[in-house]
Design a protein around this nucleic acid. Structure first.
Lengths: 207, 207
DNA sequence: GCGCATTTTGAACATTGTTCAAATATTTTT
DNA sequence: AAAAATATTTGAACAATGTTCAAAATGCGC
């Protein structure tokens, strides 16, 4: 019976993450309480702190899972699409759909903030940044002459722009634009961006 | 000595908003505590609740002021610029600078979320949405044939896209891109968008 | 099975937002 | 101007929360 300690520990960890995920799913980010989560996970209150540094780190663990999911969604959305523009359009749509279908999880990822002094773990940042690679691929086809550094920067911007459009529409701050017209808006945005890139190609000496 | 009641009330209100603003300025959104704010404002703990429904509403009052500031900044950034593209570029830059110079206030505006049931007051939403008008003006010059409805939708998207780019860069989740290259990236983005709009003009039957 | 090391437990604590009866201040009435 | 009526301000008390840590329970090597 060796290694039972480590096994228990891992089991507790995943039970806690699962519990926190469910909690976020139906109560949102603010609805996650140490007592509820530990009860749900079937451990004592203090158990949480034997596996995570604090509640924020548990949230980050949940968010990491969500990011993995989103990454996979983007991957399969782009797979097999003919041409860079179609790929980007498909990913933008998939991003929108994911956000709409998993609003609370998605809000947890982008709405969670650590308290003033604390720093986000590097592995989490890396996982986040890794998603940009999905945009790098099609963008490189549209602008083959771009250096890797500029390509990365630009991919990040395109990602961020799509994110911004989705985010501002989802925050039901104002009456939500109907989902379908939002999808058209996104399509249009990608199309315009691509047309702009094509139009500007070679026209400028250097950027 | 008539009307002293209302005067006192208004005075308390603005002292509270000012105190909360300072608190956010140097401690961030999470650093705002009922006790600190009321002490700073020179009233008792309960005083806060005689003027605001709760802490969240006080935050919204601060955010409303910040939005006004930002609105003014965008206004004067665009004023006198020759042509729509120059206007949009100037506003994007101004937006970035404002976010960088007022990080905590800006984060409070876009990072604050009400608890599950509560609803954002309509006057606040209106103030927020009003900012889009700054993008509507130049966009209308670029695409004069667009209906007012589509124009609004598109202006919102452009605003959101710029917001997204700024937001993702500012969240120091990953090593911040140096401010200057970020500015160039924004310029480039606006330029590309404008080129795309021009290239697509008339080419599509209807959108 | 026994003793040691590690983990789990949950009562206790500190820090919050919020409430509300009492105290204070203002306005109205006489 | 004093008294009565009304409204506001106060801050002690409460409830809800994240976090800690000594004691109890559990796992491990012999």
């Amino acid at each position: 019976m060796a290694g039972k300690r480590e096994a228990n520990r891992q089991d507790l960890k995943s039970r806690l993450v699962a519990a926190a995920r469910e909690q976020i799913l139906d109560k949102g980010l603010k609805g996650i309480r140490a007592r509820d989560v530990t009860t749900r996970a079937g451990c004592a209150l203090g158990g949480l702190y034997s596996v995570f540094e604090d509640l924020d780190m548990l949230v980050i663990a949940v968010n990491a899972e969500t990011l993995m999911q989103l990454d996979a969604v983007l991957s399969s959305a782009a797979a097999g699409r003919p041409g860079p523009v179609a790929q980007m359009r498909a990913m933008a749509r998939a991003y929108l759909r994911f956000a709409l279908d998993n609003r609370n999880l998605w809000n947890a990822v982008f709405g969670h903030r650590l308290p003033e002094g604390a720093n986000i773990p590097q592995w989490y940042v890396d996982e986040y940044v890794a998603m940009f690679r999905h945009v790098v691929a099609p963008l490189a086809m549209l602008e083959p002459e771009l250096s890797p550094g500029k390509l990365n920067l630009k991919a990040r911007s395109v990602f961020a722009a799509v994110h911004g459009i989705v985010a501002i529409s989802i925050q039901e701050r104002f009456v939500g634009v109907p989902g379908e017209s939002l999808e058209r808006e996104l399509d249009d945005f990608i199309e315009t961006l691509a047309a702009g890139i094509a139009a500007r190609r070679g026209r400028t000496a250097q950027r």
